[in-house]
Simulated assay, not measured.
Amino acid sequence: MAYRFVRARPKEARLPELRERLDGGDLREMEPFGAAMTHSLTNAKFDPQTGEAVWVEEDYCSPPLAMERTVLDEYFDDLTVVDEDVPESAGWARIDDLPSLWDRVPTTS
């Protein structure tokens, strides 16, 4: 499996909608990447030093995240694949000490 270490600047006003789509299962249903993207974004972290969301994404596209960009570009700017081939656990360990991206987003319910 291929995992990408990703950084992107959240579109703050759009994050409540993204949270709702993740919680509602809307994104999970997207084939073939929905389940992996839902897992990654649900566990995304926030880097307060850069103001970026960071996560590890399972991905097999060339270029990286080609299919996922149709969704990701709605909610993030300046998306950068920092590392195109990172072991999943090592990628998540890099950001383990950061706060959740979702701690900053008010819930709609």
Rank of each mutant, 00 (worst) to 15 (best):
A2P: 15
Y3K: 12
R4W: 12
R4T: 13
V6M: 01
R7Y: 03
R7D: 00
R7F: 01
A8H: 01
A8T: 00
P10H: 01
P10G: 01
K11R: 15
R14V: 12
P16T: 06
E17V: 13
L18K: 05
L18V: 07
E20N: 09
E20K: 10
L22Y: 06
D23N: 11
D23W: 13
D23L: 14
D23V: 12
G24N: 12
G24K: 10
G25E: 11
G25K: 09
D26K: 11
L27Y: 12
E29R: 15
E29F: 12
F33G: 08
F33V: 14
G34I: 11
A35N: 08
A36C: 09
A36Q: 11
A36E: 15
A36D: 15
M37D: 09
M37E: 10
T38D: 08
T38R: 11
H39Q: 13
H39A: 11
S40L: 07
L41Y: 03
T42Q: 13
T42G: 08
A44I: 04
A44Q: 03
A44R: 01
K45Y: 01
F46T: 01
D47S: 03
P48M: 09
T50P: 03
T50C: 00
T50D: 02
G51M: 06
G51Q: 00
A53W: 00
A53T: 00
A53I: 00
V54C: 05
V54G: 01
V54Y: 00
V56C: 08
E58P: 04
D59N: 14
C61H: 14
C61L: 10
P63Q: 10
P64R: 06
L65C: 10
L65P: 04
A66W: 10
E68S: 07
R69F: 04
T70S: 06
L72E: 04
L72Q: 03
D73T: 05
E74I: 09
E74S: 05
Y75K: 07
D77C: 01
V81H: 00
D83I: 10
D85N: 15
D85Y: 12
D85S: 14
P87F: 05
P87I: 12
E88L: 09
E88V: 11
S89W: 08
A90C: 03
G91C: 07
G91E: 05
W92Q: 06
R94E: 08
R94T: 07
I95K: 02
I95V: 13
D96Q: 10
D97H: 13
P99S: 04
P99L: 05
L101Q: 05
W102Q: 04
D103G: 11
P106S: 03
P106L: 02
T108V: 04
T108K: 07
T108I: 12
S109Q: 09
